[in-house]
């Protein structure tokens, strides 16, 4: 089993993801520079990390989406291999059309950096199988554009297919507008594509995988995919 962490100019969570996989979970992991046009065959799961690729110019992820490596990421996903996008990675996957929707500016117009709670909505995916249904995870968000938007018909399709993975909630798991930090439709914090092999989320699980960093609630997401790839 091998992971690849894609590095765009402006990525800044690439090392955190690499560290979790290599040092916390002892897995084989490699960096993949965005100019690469061939991802090694032995890579099973790609991670698009957080950051501010291309300075968020035009729209978040809009330029990164045309990086040379992205054609390869699309092929990789089409083959049924696994892709995770975290924060800016989620924004890029949406722009690339690999995930539905778009991340708009927070309704407060502010950059928000704080711990939030998210409720796990679907545990029958390769990215959440080690979580418990309804489990509430505490992890940080750090974004200005995390306001997830899809139109009504797409939202219904996501809900009906169980494609909503995480929702912002209170510590008790109550999904309310009070617990919604950025205005996301239906409190959505993370989704998976219809095929179930591409996921994106705004919170940062890679930042809470060791007690010394204040928590381990992010670990379940990585151990899920690790166990799945077995």
């Amino acid at each position: 089993m091998k992971f690849g962490v894609v590095v765009f100019p402006g990525s800044n969570c690439d090392h955190d993801c690499h560290h979790v996989l290599k040092n916390v979970l002892s897995k084989d992991v490699t960096y993949i520079w965005h100019k690469t046009t061939a991802v090694d065959d032995d890579v099973d799961c790609l991670i698009l990390p957080g950051g501010f690729s291309y300075g968020d110019y035009l729209r978040t992820g809009a330029i990164a989406r045309f990086s040379p490596v992205m054609a390869e990421v699309e092929q990789f996903a089409k083959k049924g291999k696994y892709v995770m996008g975290i924060c800016n990675g989620f924004q890029i996957l949406c722009e690339a059309g690999l995930l539905p929707g778009v991340l708009m500016m927070n309704n407060s117009l502010k950059f928000i950096c704080k711990n939030v709670h998210i409720r796990v909505e679907n545990i029958h995916t390769p990215f959440t199988s080690k979580c418990r249904k309804g489990e509430v995870l505490k992890m940080p968000i750090a974004h200005k554009d995390g306001n997830y938007f899809v139109d009504e018909s797409t939202l219904k399709r996501l809900e009906d297919n169980g494609q909503v993975l995480f929702r912002y909630s209170t510590p008790d798991g109550d999904v309310s507008s009070k617990a919604n930090p950025n205005g996301s439709v239906a409190n959505i914090a993370g989704v998976v594509n219809a095929e179930g092999n591409v996921m994106g989320m705004m919170p940062h699980p890679e930042r809470v995988c060791e007690p010394i960093l204040g928590g381990t609630d992010g670990l379940g997401i990585f151990t899920s995919i690790v166990e799945f790839l077995g």
Binding site: L58, R59, A62, F66, E95, V102, M104, F149, V150, D151
Partner: peptide
């Protein structure tokens, strides 16, 4: 292709 995102 680039300048606008047709979703929004």
């Amino acid at each position: 292709e680039l300048l606008a995102n047709p979703v929004i």
